[in-house]
Design a protein around this nucleic acid. Structure first.
Length: 811
DNA sequence: ACTAAAGAACTC
DNA sequence: AGTTCTTTAGTG
């Protein structure tokens, strides 16, 4: 019998294994990689075939009689290639998650199908006692009238019973009065456009026949000029040609109205404003020469391109992409945030106008699907986007570029908690592709790996045209306070703003906190108002609401303190909203635009804000760290960083690294075109090496000092970290389970070097929705051994434990 | 995640 | 006893 091993697309750890199905004769063409529709339990779900095998009854053993047949195929071709399956399997093993959970990342949307339940009446039960009730009778009669309807359709037909329809339907199914059927439909919608196709040759004689039908004559002329005599209705409409005219001409048999699929692409009309750089610098050439042999021979290798801001890393990316495309291989270009795709698309479009698709999670499902279709048809070979672009179905990747490789947003912070760098590296290995990590300030991990010889370091230390780096000035905020300035804005920064505006130039100001006030406290009893779900302080926003930046929950500001009923409630700390207000007061003539998560909810909000700023409609761009990333605005000559060190006091071993990178990156935004920029950094820790090295743009200096600390504390890159989060309603159970694991770990690794386990300790959000959370941290030099140990302990199958490999937040 | 079956609580 | 709500096991 022909059988298939199938992983069902259900994200539950306890069923993270293959189930065997029989393959009916009419589906005998199915192979590994196909998405299918299968019966599972009492319902039908999507599944992924991972292998197909001919099996005898003996081989099947006692399962022989229990096999259910695969119902249908979801697509017309296999969705997962062998390489994709291989990558998904490796990643599932590495991150200790289920294969299905990993595989569903390789599709746009979590599932390829939408399953609807269709209810049908059972005729034999027409006189069931339960149907004496009017509501039940109405539903039954409604279904008896026609074919069978979904819940939504019944609700539409019987609006009176809509509210308790679910209960009615459940009940009727329970008694067998109604039957259920599961129907799978495509989730995404293909879009079509109508177009006119010219059938005849347009000769002067033919046009003469339409002397008295001017509109149709015009249409003929337009179509004869068009490519292949085809033109979309939308384009014709733009030329004031009505559908009536088109239909008339179709009646006459001279044209044909047809339909074709259009692939949506909201980046299609990106204007080509980028000037191609013609002469490469010496450094650029060196970098390209180092990588080219590997690309030409189709050999995997990893490179770290360390180039200061303005050294022309993008041009290196483009040159390498050209070479990969010339060999017929595909290219993936990753950026840390969706907002930065526009920038890269712009640069690449100048060289590859039609060879690009954009892929990220803010696109609609259909749009992502259209992008996949374009890639599959060979309509584009360069995928640009955020993390999720890595999972585009590509069969021949030659080059993976990861810009700003140090950026923490490359780590997915929900399950499966993968790091794009790990995925990129594994894909590069499987495809024998070149991996190119780019950064001005590489992560300590990557830089360390170049010293270990695992990656090849390429450097570009000079800015193009040898432009000077900006002048950086540090302002000690303690000093400011002593001088009597209690504003967020120091006087030197205020002065810089005024001077810059006087010259007609622009300023970027970065404050790493959104909202108005960072916490709200009662002055009588000291109670800080906290989120009901996670107990973290709520942030006050100017719209009068308190919001939790962790759970995205908002609530109104209470009139009196919830603890002591005092009316003395005050706002402390400052965010971007408050700074915006203060700027208006201190520099009334300044036109300020704010960019943070609150003002960038829509797909193109980032681009719109930056565009307005670029067009000089505003003087000051004020925002959170997103203003520090990758934008190049010529007229910006000054940058202010409000509290560069706010992260230094966090309980995170990467605090110093974060602070250093924030300063270097933000400072890099100033003065990229001719004029030397000026940067002011406000800090309470002017002596800290992260601040001093940041100001001096001294990566090596920072690296050396930080590495000493990391080694002393056995932190990455000298170890790798695995975070385990234990959750339980009972505090003691959560803690006890964690404790048990710690004991088992110590037993297992007794005497082994390079293994350390810490905890359990309460998580930052110690209690979430009534569930207690404890954290255990493992530091190891032998990650595979730890992964193996966790698998032995069956930890990856437990619903109450979340495993995070290479976590970003420790607690 | 969802279903179906088994068990516990509740109504009459 | 009959019904309804809750818990639990199992999905090929």
């Amino acid at each position: 019998m022909l059988t298939a091993n199938v992983f069902v697309n259900i994200p539950v750890k306890s069923i993270a294994r293959a189930y065997t199905y029989s393959v009916p004769a009419e589906l005998s063409y199915l192979e590994a990689g196909w998405r299918v529709f299968v019966p599972f339990g009492g319902r039908k779900v999507e599944g992924f075939i991972v292998s197909v095998a001919e099996k005898t009854a003996e081989e099947l053993g006692d399962m022989a009689g229990k096999l259910k047949p695969i119902e249908a195929a979801v697509d017309e071709e296999p969705w997962f290639s062998d390489k994709m399956l291989q990558a998904a399997q490796w990643l599932a093993d590495f991150y200790l998650c289920s294969l299905a959970e990993m595989m569903r990342l390789f599709m746009p949307g979590k599932s390829g199908i939408k399953i609807t339940v269709i209810y049908q009446s059972v005729p034999e039960q027409a006189n069931h006692l339960l149907l004496a009730m009017p509501a039940y009778r109405a539903v039954y009669d409604c279904l008896s009238a026609g074919e069978g309807l979904s819940r939504g359709e019944i609700g539409k037909a019987l609006p009176d019973y809509k509210t308790d329809l679910p209960q009615i339907l459940d009940k009727l199914c329970q008694y067998g009065i109604l039957s259920k059927e599961y129907q799978a439909g495509k989730r995404e919608k293909a879009r079509y456009e109508k177009f006119a196709q010219l059938l005849a040759e347009v000769t002067p004689e033919l046009l003469a026949e339409f002397k008295r039908k001017k509109a149709q004559q015009h249409l003929l002329e337009v179509l004869s000029a068009a490519e292949q005599g085809q033109m979309a209705f939308a384009a014709l409409k733009a030329q004031k040609i009505t559908t009536a005219t088109i239909h008339n001409l179709a009646e006459a048999g001279l044209i044909q109205i047809r339909q074709r699929r259009v692939l949506r692409d909201s980046y299609k009309d990106t204007e080509l404003t980028c000037q191609p750089q013609i002469n490469l610098t010496l450094d650029q050439n060196k970098a390209i020469e180092a990588m080219t042999p590997f690309l030409s021979e189709g050999k995997h290798h990893g490179f770290l391109l360390k180039g200061v801001t303005g050294s022309g890393k993008t041009q290196v990316y483009i040159e390498m992409a050209k070479k990969a495309r010339a060999k017929g291989r595909q290219v993936v270009v990753l950026v840390p945030e969706i907002a930065l795709t526009g920038q890269v698309v712009l640069a690449f479009k100048a060289y590859f106008p039609d060879d690009i698709v954009v892929m990220h999670s803010r696109l609609s499902l259909s749009e992502r699907n259209d992008a996949v279709v374009r890639v599959r048809r060979g309509g584009a070979g360069i995928v640009i986007g955020a993390r999720s672009a890595l999972f585009t179905p590509l069969d021949n990747i030659g080059l993976i570029i990861m810009d700003e490789e140090q950026d923490m947003s490359y780590k997915q912070d929900e399950s499966p908690r993968y790091h794009a760098k790990v995925v990129a590296e594994e894909l590069a290995k499987i495809h024998q592709a070149v991996l190119l990590l780019g950064s001005a300030t590489p992560s300590l991990e990557s830089y360390y790996r170049t010293q270990q010889g695992e990656l090849t370091l390429l450097t570009m230390p000079k800015r193009i045209g040898d432009m000077p780096l900006p002048v950086v000035q540090c302002v000690d905020m303690r000093q400011e306070l002593r001088m009597g300035n209690r504003h967020i804005l120091s006087r030197p920064l205020q002065l810089l703003i005024e001077q810059t505006m006087a010259k007609g130039q622009q300023i970027i100001i970065m404050l790493n906190r959104r909202g108005f006030s960072t916490f709200v406290m009662c002055r009588s009893c000291g109670e800080v108002i906290k989120c009901k779900l996670c107990a973290l302080p709520l942030v006050y926003h100017k719209n009068g609401k308190l919001s939790c930046h962790h759970c995205d929950v908002t609530e109104p500001v209470p009139d009196v303190c919830p603890k002591c009923s005092s009316r003395y409630i005050k706002y402390f700390g400052s965010g971007t909203e408050k700074l915006e207000q203060e700027l208006h007061q201190i520099v009334p003539s300044a036109r300020v635009i704010r960019m943070d998560r609150d003002t960038t909810n829509t797909k193109f909000a980032h681009q719109e804000i930056l565009q307005k700023f670029r067009e000089k409609q505003y003087d000051i761009l004020l925002g959170t760290q997103m203003v520090a990333k990758g934008h190049d605005i010529p007229n910006v000559t000054a940058v202010g960083i409000i509290s560069a060190d706010s992260s230094l006091n966090l309980p995170d071993f990467r605090a110093a690294e974060r602070c250093f990178m924030l300063i270097t990156q933000t400072a890099g935004r100033a003065g990229r075109h001719g004029t030397q920029g000026k940067v002011i950094i406000q800090t309470y820790n002017p002596e800290h090496y992260a601040v001093t090295c940041g100001i001096a743009q001294d990566y090596e200096g920072f690296y050396e000092q930080e590495m000493v600390l990391r080694q002393g504390l056995f932190y990455p890159p000298f170890s790798r970290i695995v975070k385990l989060l234990f959750q339980h309603e009972e505090e003691n159970n959560a803690k006890g389970n964690a404790q048990k694991l710690v004991i088992a770990f110590n037993e297992h690794f007794a005497g082994a070097k390079g293994q350390q386990i810490i905890g359990p300790s309460p998580a930052v959000i110690a209690r979430f929705r009534g569930i207690y959370r404890f954290v255990v941290l493992i530091k190891t030099t032998d990650l595979p051994a730890v992964q193996e140990f966790l698998r032995e302990q069956q930890l990856h199958l437990r619903a109450d434990v979340a495993i995070d490999i290479d976590p970003i937040a420790m607690l």
